[in-house]
Design a binder for these strands. Sequence first.
DNA 1: AACGGCTCTGTCG
DNA 2: CGACAGAGCCGTT
Length: 290
Amino acid sequence: MNAIAQLKKDITPEGQDYETVREVIELITEEYRDQPSLEMLAERLGQSPTQLQKTFTRWAGLSPKAFLQAVTLDHAKRLLRKEDLPLLETSFEVGLSGPSRLHDLFVTHEAMSPGEWKAKGSGLVMRYAFHISPFGLALIMVTDRGLAGLAFSDSGDEKACLADMTCRWPNAQFIEDPQATAPYAARIFERSNWSSDQPLRVVLIGSDFQLRVWESLLKIPMGRAVSYSDIARDIGQPTAMRAVGAAVGRNPISFVVPCHRALGKNGQLTGYHWGLTRKRAILGWESGDA
DNA sequence: AACGGCTCTGTCG
DNA sequence: CGACAGAGCCGTT
């Protein structure tokens, strides 16, 4: 039995929650005009209202109602609030605990341009595997220097997801190795592990421009969001927002490099490489911390 | 040369 | 208001 089959067999209740959440989010976004009640939603999913309530709360630490509220355009605009946005100037270097990041995941990153790692002999080795996450299956890829890739997939789409990632580093060598990636999964998706003494090591591989955009993303604290033009300004190219959007979309380490915290200036979510529904889910899930 | 996870402005309901 | 063009902007491919 291969690793993915094994994974499905061992799936935890927590791992299944996202399925439920995803369906609810989709129902809501399609039919938000109707303001569907908890009862109606539960019926559509073939669950009892109390059961749905429970699943939600376990998943997000938030009641369904509060969660749905957290996913509206209104709330997104609030995340964008302009005052006290000197956060883009604050340092986020290694383990330094700005209070704003106290409850966030600490990350140290190391940048690598394509030329740089290509030059280093015949490419680097990437170990990968799928793991259960709060947002569906997570494909995690690591090098000996740290986390290099994190992608999401619905179950059944693992192949496409893997292809999406591997083709980004054509001359790397890929080895399936759940043992190597599991600690990362535990560290990243278990909130209680976020504040551990050691920061998470991350390797950013991309063009110079992309690197600057991704580094800017790393400065956005949990529970906040910025617009694409904010990022453009931050990296010193205020008119390059469109290109910024493209670069954000190419972020290879989603969730850890919080590209889901980049929104349109008006609060619209506008896009997510792994699906808008998932972006909503992550944003809503994060709001459960506040 | 074309194409985006953008934004702004102008128009029409 | 909200939806929809049109027009600049800019790094990738």
